[in-house]
Simulated scan of single mutants.
Amino acid sequence: MNHPEKLRSESVWTTQELTKMALVAALYVAVTFALQPVGYGNIQFRVAEMFNFLALYNKRYVWGVTIGCAIANRASPNGLLDVIVGSVCTFFVLLLCRYLTRKIKDMRIKIAVTTVIFAISMFTVAAQLTILFQAPFLFNWLTIGIGELLSMAIGGIVIYVISKKIDLTA
């Protein structure tokens, strides 16, 4: 028979970890909603993408960012498709970035690599817009990729500076 204290120690996440994930998800949603006019469409500058870098500091944030992205995409003009495509792609690209940067010690390089990977990954959003609106794929990929590159580059600087003042790994 399991004892209550044994069950608690076997839980996947602590209350503190769940709270941090929920906070990141809420911040992602709030920032996306506050800047909604530039967060959707074929020209995007989604400032909340800066939270993607948190996954480099702690794997728990893969879930927080993914859930935040899914909730934020509910407001997308592309509806449920954007929720599914956007959040699934975010989840897998975050895992890919964690994997590809796992041996890199310098966080600035990890941030740069993650920025480029996310910009390239915008082919998924471009494909979605091409399917929904018969919009030109390469143009969509270019404009969305540039927006992602810029928002991630600026966001990377912000998160890096914050990480010097707050331990994001804890």
Rank of each mutant, 00 (worst) to 15 (best):
C97Q: 06
M122Y: 01
A112Y: 05
V113A: 08
K105V: 10
I104D: 07
A127Y: 09
D106T: 05
K103W: 08
F118N: 14
T101V: 04
T124P: 02
I117L: 11
F123L: 10
A127F: 10
S121Q: 07
L100D: 10
F118Q: 05
K103C: 05
T130S: 14
R108Y: 03
I111W: 01
T115H: 02
I104T: 12
Y99I: 08
M107R: 09
T124F: 12
T101F: 04
I104M: 08
A112T: 12
R98H: 02
R98W: 07
F118P: 04
L129G: 10
T114R: 00
V113M: 07
K110N: 13
K105T: 15
R108S: 15
I117C: 05
K105H: 08
T114M: 14
R98N: 13
I109H: 00
Q128I: 06
R108D: 10
A126F: 05
I120F: 11
A127L: 15
F123I: 15
R98Y: 02
T124I: 11
R108G: 11
D106W: 00
I120C: 06
S121K: 00
V113Y: 02
V125K: 02
I117K: 00
F123M: 08
K110Q: 15
Q128A: 08
D106G: 02
I117T: 08
M107D: 14
R102E: 14
K103Y: 10
I131V: 15
Y99H: 11
A126P: 07
A126Q: 08
I109Y: 03
R98T: 13
L132N: 11
Q128F: 00
Y99F: 13
K110P: 01
R102I: 11
V113S: 05
K110H: 01
I111T: 10
V125A: 15
I117R: 03
M122E: 14
A112G: 12
M107N: 10
S121D: 14
L100Q: 07
T130L: 01
V125R: 00
I120E: 01
A127H: 00
F123D: 04
F118M: 13
T124V: 12
R102Y: 04
T114A: 12
F118T: 05
V116D: 09
K103P: 06
T130K: 04
T101L: 04
K110M: 03
R102L: 06
T130W: 09
L129Q: 07
A112E: 05
A119E: 07
M122Q: 15
I120L: 15
I111Y: 03
T114W: 00
Q128E: 15
I117A: 05
V113F: 03
Y99T: 09
I131M: 13
K105N: 12
L129F: 11
M122H: 01
I104L: 13
T124A: 14
I117M: 07
A112I: 15
A126C: 04
L100P: 09
R102N: 13
T115R: 02
A119L: 02
S121I: 07
K103A: 12
C97S: 11
I117Q: 03
A127M: 13
C97R: 00
R102A: 14
I104W: 02
T115L: 05
L132Q: 10
T114C: 11
T101D: 09
K110E: 12
C97L: 06
V116P: 09
T130G: 08
R102H: 13
V125S: 13
D106R: 04
I109K: 11
T124W: 09
A127I: 06
L132K: 05
T124Q: 02
K103T: 14
K110I: 00
C97T: 11
F118R: 01
I109G: 06
V125N: 08
K110L: 01
